[in-house]
Every structure is written in C-alpha cells, then in structure tokens.
Nucleic acid binder design. Sequence first.
DNA 1: ACCGGAAGCAAGTACCCACTTGCTTTCTTT
DNA 2: AAAGAAAGCAAGTGGGTACTTGCTTCCGGT
Lengths: 202, 202
Amino acid sequence: MEIRDRILEAAARVYALHGYRGSTTRLIANEAGVNEVTLFRTFGSKDSLLEALARGHADAAEVPELPAIPKHPERELSDWCRSVLAYLTQHRSFLRKSMSEMEEHPVVAESACTGPNCAGQALARYVRALTEHGLARPEGDTDTAISMLMASLFGDAMYRDMMPGAFPEPAGAAPARYACCFLRAVGVPPAPRRRKSTASPA
Amino acid sequence: MEIRDRILEAAARVYALHGYRGSTTRLIANEAGVNEVTLFRTFGSKDSLLEALARGHADAAEVPELPAIPKHPERELSDWCRSVLAYLTQHRSFLRKSMSEMEEHPVVAESACTGPNCAGQALARYVRALTEHGLARPEGDTDTAISMLMASLFGDAMYRDMMPGAFPEPAGAAPARYACCFLRAVGVPPAPRRRKSTASPA
DNA sequence: ACCGGAAGCAAGTACCCACTTGCTTTCTTT
DNA sequence: AAAGAAAGCAAGTGGGTACTTGCTTCCGGT
C-alpha cells in the first residue's frame, strides 16, 4: 500500500483514540510502521497531516441512499436507519473527538459534520416524497421529527456505550424502533402486520 | 473566595476549552490568578485536581423536577425540556470534552453522564405517572420515545452551534416542539389551542 | 512582639513534542 | 553496472509540561 495511505490510516486510528493533542507524530509513525521522519517528508507537518485526514474523511463519507419513490416506508426507513447507525457507530470515536475539538480545530469538526448533514438532507427529501405520494398525512411537526430522528441515531451511535440503559435494547432492534416512532410522528399509518394481532385498531 | 474553589472554577473553564491534555497546570493557575505551585500544594497533582473537578460536577448536577402528579402535560413537559436544554447547553463544552475523552479518562466521562441519566429517569417516571392518571394512552413505544426525546435535547445542546439547519428554528421554540412531538408519540392528545391557527406555517 | 501557616516567587529537573539535519540503505530504472 | 529516488536511522534543537525545592513575604492569633 502507498505509504501515504498507511500513514493516513494510522493517523485515523490514533486520532480516534487520543484526539488532536494526543496524536503525537511518534505515535502515528509507530502505528503506521514508518519512520517518523518519513511522516514529515510526506506531509510537511502534523497540522497538514491531520488536515489531510479530515479532508479525506469528508470526501469518503458515503451516506446510505433512500429511494426516490417510496414504496414501503417502514421497511425502507428501518433499513436506512440501520445503515446510518452503522456508519455513525463505526466512526463514533473519530466523530466524538473532532466535534469536541471544534473550538481549537474547526476544520476537522466541519468535515466530521458532512456525513450527518447529508443524512439529514436525504431524510428530509424522503419525507417530502412520502407526502407527495400520499403515504403520509403531515399532521405533526415534520421538521422537528426529522431533527429528533437524526439526534436519536447520532446519540445512539455516540453514547450508547457510556450510558447503558439510556437507549432501546437490544441494540439491533433500535433502528427499527426509531423508524417506527418517527413514522408515527409524521402521520404515516403503521404497516399492517401479517400476523394475528394487528396492533390496536382504536 | 476559598483558593481551592477558585482553582476548581478556573480548571472547569480551561478544561471546557482545551480538554484534559490542553489543561496545563500553568494555564489553570493563571486563569485562577494563583501561583502554579499553590495549585500543586492544594491538589497534589494535575490528575487529582481534575478528578476533584469531575466529582464536583457530578455532585452539583441538579436536574429540573417534573411534577409527581401531572396536570398539564404539554406545559409541564415544555418547561422541563427548556430547563434541561438550558442545563445541557450551559455545560456543553465540558460535556463534549469529557465524553470524548472517556477512553483515556473514564472517571470524568462517568461523572458527566450523571446529569443526563437523572433527567432520563425523571422523564420515565413522569410518563408512568401520565399513564397511571389516564392522561396518556400508551399505544406507541414509550421507551423508545423517551430515548429519542433525551437524545434530541442532548443533540440540540451539544451540536446546534456546529450544525446549523439540523435543529428546529428558532432555538427558543425548540423545547416546546420536542415536547409536543414526544407527547404525540406516547399518545397524549394535543391540548386545545385557544387561538385560531394551530399548526406552524409550512 | 512573635510565631506559624498560607501564599508567592525563581529556579531547576526530567521528560515529551514537533521538527531538522546529515548520512546510509534499499530498490527501481535505465 | 550506474544513477536517482525513496525510505531508514541517529542525533540534535528549541520549546513545553508536570512537578520539586528553597526561599521570601504576608497576615492573623496569642
């Protein structure tokens, strides 16, 4: 593998664990199995190495898609929530670190935001499509519901491990439950269950 | 004021800005208007100073109360959300920092969690009281809704400043909107509006 | 007037960090 | 085989950081 990429990957690992100040050039070089001098020859300085890392993270952020023409809201949204949650969980240490250091290193924080931001926009588009196709009766406060769903996914990914009991159990079932709650809030009737009790007919 | 408290307050300010590694004893001492040596004479080491800071934060965390006998859910919950949001917003830098450093300093992260945890429990109690008093028809997924409301308050407090557009505007109206969405989700019928137009203009 | 404790001050120690320099090794290309 | 580029290695520089030491100053109680 290119030495440049090896250093970048090592930097990502070290940064996720120790943050900006804790990511010493020595640590990164060791983690990459590379001489410290090579790091400086390749990137010039610690600052520009981590800047490259941030830029790379923002560029590589591929957010899962939601269908342009909704068919089965509950299933589609559950799957999407699961993907987004997986993405956020995978990067949670990196995200935690970079968002907490935004006062000192705004560039890194901004690039960390692009992923979640894109996801939020995709969700907003999907809800618009839902109403346009007559699948939702937007009686509630759609914008707020979107914020709340995104915040839930974000919070789950970032803080489940340090706040046991604050999130739905088991973790695997959480995305579907978030999706259902959200759909209720934006006025999408729950899909008929194929089994016996079809919830409360009320 | 006691010199000990002056140092602790300075440490809180510096820590919220710079995190653990960035909180140099020199910086804290300057901020407190105290000689650096005095800091070591008082606390022994940087580690135990910041441990005392964390302990103090956990002890001083006073979470707003929710009435034991609910009367006007929408108003009570809106007010409560506003208080919690204010509390979280006030401490957001401290919370961001300590939660992002939990791998290296778990003690600080734990103490940062006590506030939000207590709030979540208070909310759960309140919802139980709501159903017991016949004010809510718990048709939805109450636990998930509680998680989502807490995550929304948390996310709003922590990330509104760095993710513009991801949270309800204006900021002042957000807590009430979170509360309304939540009440809808747990099956509390919206309170009758005294004025004509109830919904927000699209 | 005197004593003791709390705080300030200046200096020093040992270590860590970003970054540089000068040189050697290794590998590829011609 | 010769040449050049890329990487390693050892050492060093200047500055920061946690923490210590030895001393002076200030202030309240007896």
